[in-house]
Design a protein around this nucleic acid. Structure first.
Length: 595
RNA sequence: GCGCCCUUAGCUCAGUUGGAUAGAGCAACAGCCUUCUAAGCUGUGGGUCGGUGGUUCGAAUCCACCAGGGCGCGCCA
């Protein structure tokens, strides 16, 4: 049975509605909601059942509502029913029904809030997927955190989740990377070439001039000595070294990236290599397959409207019929020279995910990839026959702010650019929490001063403070009553009738909404909702805490009233459990004390 | 020119997938510490939800058009 008392009441409401409207269509029943009320004056829950069913029942909403009132008044958990507005039915719930959640929360621990809405559907969440051409920077960070939290959230909601990283280790960029690493290698073995001399010898010129490749060059020098260079330490023929240098450099850069991910607390299950896929011939197989399905043709695209590239000229390409599946134009799979496009490789990659049997593919992407979504959706639809759903979560850019000013991305000026710098400055948990305090598709400002400030407008701090206070009370209780008296097990059997203050009941009602928050956030693919739920929960708890200052009888710990104290400790412990449950989704460690 | 995202209090943002009188924090003002952490809490003021139409019992939310901001638009990934 679900722990969501709103879901249980919804079942009761629908059962009653079926008595009133015997031939109620299922799609109407599906629209029936039982929601927490915004205003306690309206009761604890409200249902729209009479409003949504009125048309199908050919009855006035008020009339259905009146009948519902009669039925629902009989339900044991219901303390009062009334009609409001055009036909809402408001329900007051027996406080005991809410209080009964506390032992359930304590018994389930952080598993409270787990849901089965995912139906064990197999979901692949692909995120980060930074090119292995440099260290991770803040731009990758948001996608990493959002993707990781989304994956955790879906797992909690009952999906079978695989977290995946796609290594873009094929194409021209990694060749450029190999040249750049080779330059650092030549430097490490003492070449006399200048950077510009070297750059002139590189097809397309030297890219990736960042200092982060210096250690890579040194490592290559340790491994190979001068054997990859000419005897005069000049440039050897590329075919003698480029494959080796590229592979070893990619390995080293991926080592760096995995190190960064580890520091961020991101642990992906699967790393897929574009190069491995290409070398196994997956792209060719894919193109043949699409061709046999008549989804490919040789053609010439129209120039893009508006701003036409200066060097535009029509060229025949191998095109995928993306427009058959809702995209705006057909998309090239082979360049005019016959080589595969990135998109072709990426379709092959997504096809490999389909082969692994996923029901839903979710890509967490930067907003600059927004235009890419329709074509990949088209490809997945074409390949899966519409059986597999492709979704994208787009993350808008993050502006790092300090003292109200944007931080320039300049290493030389001493302002950081890498993820590692950010983590060192504010810490992993604050980074993760803060990245989840905005909708992914809204731009965000990451204020370094606010991130470490210990005030209410720092959501991370405020939530952690609430948890620390819970733990502090429980520690003090152990001193007062002994450790055995305050275990979850013993608190489960506390008598809870004394929890009747508004602040206490408000907190309990908040705890009761956690399962539906999980479900709604998972359905919407919006992990940021968890952060805001925890913020609201923390506010309820801080309010209750301070009630104990105004009214001493509401203090948690009362030595001469052990029974009432145990009830309140059960509430405190349950609050801590739910905070931990939420933080676990976000990948944030709960804080035990703040000193 | 086209597509996608965004626009809510002076500022930063939520808004339970269409529900009741649109909510928090910051900033301003007024209060609360012999007591479990005052790193907190309470109260006051502050809004034509970018604009105009539409859909219906009901719109910040859905649709159309318009305005402003961001991103993208073959042979980059």
């Amino acid at each position: 049975m679900t722990h969501d008392i709103y879901a249980r009441m919804r079942d009761t409401v629908i059962a009653a509605l079926r008595q009133i409207v015997p031939d109620l269509p299922d799609d109407i029943a599906a629209r029936v909601e039982v929601t927490p009320t915004k205003d306690q004056a309206h009761g604890d829950m409200a249902t729209n059942a009479a409003l949504v069913s009125a048309k199908a029942a050919r009855q006035a909403p008020q009339k259905i509502a009146a009948a519902l009132v009669a039925f629902l008044g009989e339900a044991p958990e219901v303390a009062g029913v009334s009609i409001a507005g055009p036909g809402f039915v408001n329900l007051r719930i027996e406080p005991i029904a809410f209080r009964a959640l506390l032992p359930i929360i304590l018994a389930n621990g952080e598993a409270y809030g787990d849901s089965s809405t995912g139906n064990d559907l197999r979901v692949n969440v692909e995120y980060v997927s930074a090119n292995p051409t440099g260290p991770m920077h803040v731009g990758h960070c948001r996608g990493a955190v959002v993707g990781d939290a989304l994956a955790n959230l879906l797992a909690k909601a009952g999906y079978d989740v695989t977290k995946e990283y796609y290594i873009n280790d094929a194409g021209a960029q990694v060749t450029a990377l190999a040249w750049a690493a080779y330059w650092r290698y030549l430097q490490a073995i003492g070449t006399k070439l200048s950077e510009e001399d070297f750059s002139n010898e590189v097809p397309g010129g030297l890219q990736y001039r960042g200092e982060y490749l210096i250690p890579v060059g040194q490592r290559l020098a340790e491994i190979h000595g001068p054997s990859l260079a000419q005897p005069d330490l000049g440039i050897a023929a590329p075919e003698e070294w480029i494959d080796l240098v590229r592979d070893q450099t990619i390995d080293m850069m991926m080592g760096e990236i995995r190190g960064d991910l580890d520091l961020l607390g991101v642990d992906q299950h699967v790393f897929s290599s574009e190069r491995a896929l290409v070398e196994a011939g997956a792209t060719d197989v894919l193109i043949d397959r699409l061709r046999s399905d008549d989804l490919i043709y040789e053609g010439v695209l129209e120039p893009p409207k508006g701003k036409t590239p200066e060097d535009w000229e029509p060229r025949p390409q191998t095109l995928f019929r993306a427009t058959n599946f809702g995209d705006d134009v057909d998309r090239p799979l082979r360049k005019s020279d016959g080589s595969a496009t990135y998109f072709a490789n990426d379709i092959a990659y997504h096809a490999s995910k389909l082969d692994r049997g996923f029901d839903i593919l979710i890509d967490v992407l930067g907003a600059d990839h927004g235009g890419y979504v329709p074509r990949m959706r088209a490809a997945v639809q074409a390949l899966s026959g519409g059986r597999t759903k492709f979704e994208a979560v787009l993350c808008q850019i993050v502006h790092i702010m300090r003292g109200g000013q944007p931080v320039r991305m300049s290493k030389r000026a001493g302002t950081f650019v890498t993820l590692r710098d950010l983590l060192e400055e504010v810490g992993r948990d604050v980074v993760r929490f803060t990245m989840l305090t905005r909708k992914a598709d809204a731009q965000m400002e990451f204020d370094l001063d606010q991130a470490v400030a210990q005030t209410r407008d720092n959501l991370s701090f405020y939530v952690q403070y609430a948890h620390a206070r819970c733990r502090s009370v429980l520690r003090a209780a152990e001193e007062m009553f002994g450790p055995d008296a305050v275990t979850s097990r013993s608190l489960e059997s506390a008598t809870l009738d004394c929890l009747d203050d508004d602040a206490e009941m408000t907190l309990i009602r908040r705890l009761a909404t956690w399962p539906r928050v999980v479900e709604a956030a998972a359905t919407a693919r919006e992990p940021h909702r968890i952060a805001f739920f925890l913020y609201d929960l923390a506010a309820d708890f801080h309010m209750l805490w301070n009630r104990g200052k105004e009214d001493a009888t509401l203090r948690f710990l009362q030595k001469e009233q052990p029974a009432d104290t145990m009830a309140r400790l059960a509430l405190v412990a349950a609050t801590a459990v739910v905070i931990r449950s939420g933080l676990a989704v976000m990948g944030v460690e709960p804080v035990e004390e703040m000193r």
